[in-house]
Design a protein around this nucleic acid. Sequence first.
DNA 1: CGATAGTTTGACACAGCTCAATAGGCGTGG
DNA 2: CCACGCCTATTGAGCTGTGTCAAACTATCG
Lengths: 258, 258
Amino acid sequence: MADAYLADTLDPRTIVMTVRQDVHSAGIPVLCQSCEARHRGICGALDPDQLVGLAKTSSKHTVEPGSELMGDAETVDSYSNVLSGVVKLTKSLSDGRQQIVALQFAPDFLGRPFKVESVINAEAATAVSLCSFPRASVERMMRESPDLEHRLLKQTLNELDDARDWMVTLGRKTAAEKVASFLLMIARNIDPTLDPNTNPTSFELPLTRADIADFLGLTIETVSRQLTRLRTDGVIRIDNNRHVTVDSLARLASRSGA
Amino acid sequence: MADAYLADTLDPRTIVMTVRQDVHSAGIPVLCQSCEARHRGICGALDPDQLVGLAKTSSKHTVEPGSELMGDAETVDSYSNVLSGVVKLTKSLSDGRQQIVALQFAPDFLGRPFKVESVINAEAATAVSLCSFPRASVERMMRESPDLEHRLLKQTLNELDDARDWMVTLGRKTAAEKVASFLLMIARNIDPTLDPNTNPTSFELPLTRADIADFLGLTIETVSRQLTRLRTDGVIRIDNNRHVTVDSLARLASRSGA
DNA sequence: CGATAGTTTGACACAGCTCAATAGGCGTGG
DNA sequence: CCACGCCTATTGAGCTGTGTCAAACTATCG
């Protein structure tokens, strides 16, 4: 969580270009140059000048799995982009029952604008690297750049679509279908370019069994039983509890209820 | 879903005002004057000139319970504001299992911008009155008025919060808690000014038992049993299957698991 | 190599589902 | 005004998928 951000922006390469507003990486802070969020994420809405401004107060850092990123009922004082890893957003009932309401992957924007208090918990599911901005900077940028708000609206609409898709999974699918849906969703998010016909695929599960249960509205035991069922039926292979190989995505999809 | 919208906007009263950009209802189309959406909804983002422009192509109309407002995989060519009544948004699995993923009340904006196809179904749960705009008009307004997009972002963020709250209900609550949560949610949405201490409260259920079941991820029978249980326990009273009276909202809330 | 955290497996219980019958609300027509 | 039929809601009886509790297994790491 160091604040060594000025170092990067003072790098000589930052000011290599002479022509302003040039084609591509002209005038772009080094901090941002190889950043995925600049292309697919919300930073893509900013021009080089704005990026330089934002980069002055932003910082990259990496956190351990399990770290709290945003506490329930805590005041939110910064926003972040997820650069790598997986963040889980959770909500809890007073008696401790928990539900994961979303997973965030790179280059998602993390934080809830226009609300001082958050009733959601954000926690690193895996090792996560983030690029964080002070709340005030983001809100100023948003006022200056309608395109930034536009991108945020688009991401929010996508998250809303995802949330509603997941509501169907939670409300209407069987345990077996839930687990298959989960694996499918992970496969697609870990490798967004994944072609349904590209078989086999393999990936690391970013969540423990307990997390998967909290995401699917099931118990650990039921998740485990359904995974072994998929394994014994030859739909997936599992190594080291975390590494999953799917021979036929279509076969997995046919078990997901969609 | 008739296209008789010009009738209203040609009404002479529409062009009564002479002073432009004036304090309050100056220059505001009659169509909009007593419209809740102009105050609490997204139309509040528009100045009188813009309102006049939008009103030219907009139309109020009323539909019967059960009418489809937006078909699965149908091309969306208009957006609407809900002026009264309740719209249910549903999603279905291929074998017919259904989940209601949201209810929309006045003055919600109805439609999914930036996507030509919708994978969601919208259906009138009660009699519904709408104010509809051609897709193109709304999108032009959005480009012209960042504040409009800002309001849309805010509504979308609220809907996302609602969806995630409901995910907890679907994934982690018992049948009894689900039904109590549902009644509480309806009570709050029918009368948004509802003070938790204002007792008793009473309202019409906008949904059939089947709809409630689809919203809660339960069966009709379970919903019915839980309602009778709440009734025999004296938490609610039910007349004519639809009219519910809650003597103590706090007592209902304590059964909702929140 | 033991300790710890995560996972799997088994036996059993129970919440909620299924199927079936009954009851109530409401409009239509006699 | 009642009789009928239709649709919706309730109630009952039994079943089953998923939860609960407990024990065994496995991976990882000091």
